[in-house]
Design a protein around this nucleic acid. Structure first.
Lengths: 148, 148
DNA sequence: CTTGACATTCAAGCGTACTTGAAGGTCTAG
DNA sequence: CTAGACCTTCAAGTACGCTTGAATGTCAAG
C-alpha cells in the first residue's frame, strides 16, 4: 500500500501521514526502489488508533507516549488510564466553564433585547457587553472542533 | 498615565497594550518628548471593554469591528447583537459536543476499570481507547481557558 | 512520447493572541 | 555618576497539527 491509499483509508491526508512519521508516531515504512513509502496493513490499525486517541482529545505527544510504551513491548494500560483520567477532568472543568459562559451570553442577549439602540450611551462603547457579573471575572476559550 | 500603569490597571502586560494598538484596537496615544506613550483615562475603559468582549469569547478581530463602528460615531448595537448571538450558538454547540465527549470518556474509564492489564492483547495497541462508539465518529477539541 | 496522477524532500505558512529578545534610550533616586 | 526601573522599535518565537509550495522524480495509460 502506498501513502495515498493508507491515508485515505484512514481518513487522512498523505501529508498528515508523513507528519506522523516525522513525529515518531508511525515507524518508517520500507520503500520501493523509487523511494515511495510502502505500508503494511497494520499501519491502518496504527493510524486508526491515533485518530481514536485524538478523538478523545489526546495530543499527538500523548499518543506518542502510549505508542512508545506499546512499542517497548509493554501494555500501555497504566499510561492510557492516567491520560484518560486527566483528560476527563479537563473536559468536565471545561463544561462547567462553558455552561457559565452560556448563561452569561444568554443574559447579555436578554439585556440587549430590552434596550432601545436610541438610548445607547455614546460616551461608552457598548455597556451591554460588560454588563454581566461573571464576564468581569473570567473567560472561556473558543476553538472549534476537529472532525474525525 | 504611561503604558505600565494603564496596562496593570487593566490587568494586561504592556506588550499586550502595544499589540492592541498595532491591531488598531487602541488609538495611538500622544507621546512625551522622549517618545513614551501617554494615555488618557478613557483608555482604561477601552481596554476594559476589550477584556470583557474577550471574556465572552469574541476575537480581537470582532472587537475591532465593534470599536470601528463606535468610532465611526454609530452605536454598535446591531453588530454586538449579531456577534453575541453567533457566539452563543457556538458555545451551545460546543457544550453538546463536550457532553458527549465526557460521556465517552466516562465509558472508556469504566471499561478500563473492568479489565486486567494481564489480559491485554499484545497484537493491538490499546483496545480500550477506540472502544466507544461515538469516539469513532467525532472529536472535540482541547484548548484551555484564557484567564481574565 | 507525452500527459497526468502520483511520489519525494525541505522549508515555510496558517491561526490566535500574545511574549520574548536584542539593542538601545530616558529618568529618578541615592 | 551610576544603578535600575522604565520606555522605545522590530523581528522572531510560542503552541498545535497540520498544509502548502517549490522543485523534482516515477510510472502507467493512451
Amino acid at each position: 500500500m502506498r501513502i495515498r491509499e493508507v491515508a485515505s483509508r484512514s481518513g487522512l491526508a498523505p501529508s498528515a501521514v508523513r507528519y506522523y512519521e516525522q513525529l515518531g508516531l508511525l515507524p518508517e515504512p520500507p520503500r520501493t526502489e523509487a523511494g515511495y513509502r510502502v505500508y503494511p496493513d497494520v499501519a491502518i490499525d496504527r493510524l486508526g488508533f491515533i485518530r481514536a486517541a485524538q478523538a478523545v482529545g489526546l495530543t499527538l505527544a500523548e499518543v506518542r507516549q502510549v505508542l512508545g510504551v506499546r512499542d517497548a513491548g509493554e501494555p500501555p494500560c497504566r499510561v492510557v488510564t492516567d491520560l484518560i483520567q486527566r483528560r476527563h477532568a479537563e473536559v468536565r472543568t471545561k463544561i462547567v466553564e462553558l455552561r457559565r459562559l452560556e448563561r452569561d451570553l444568554a443574559a447579555v442577549r436578554a439585556r440587549a433585547a430590552t434596550l432601545n439602540p436610541r438610548d445607547c450611551d455614546p460616551s461608552g462603547i457598548c455597556h451591554v457587553i460588560p454588563s454581566v457579573a461573571s464576564v468581569r471575572a473570567r473567560a472561556v476559550g473558543r476553538k472549534e472542533v476537529p472532525d474525525v
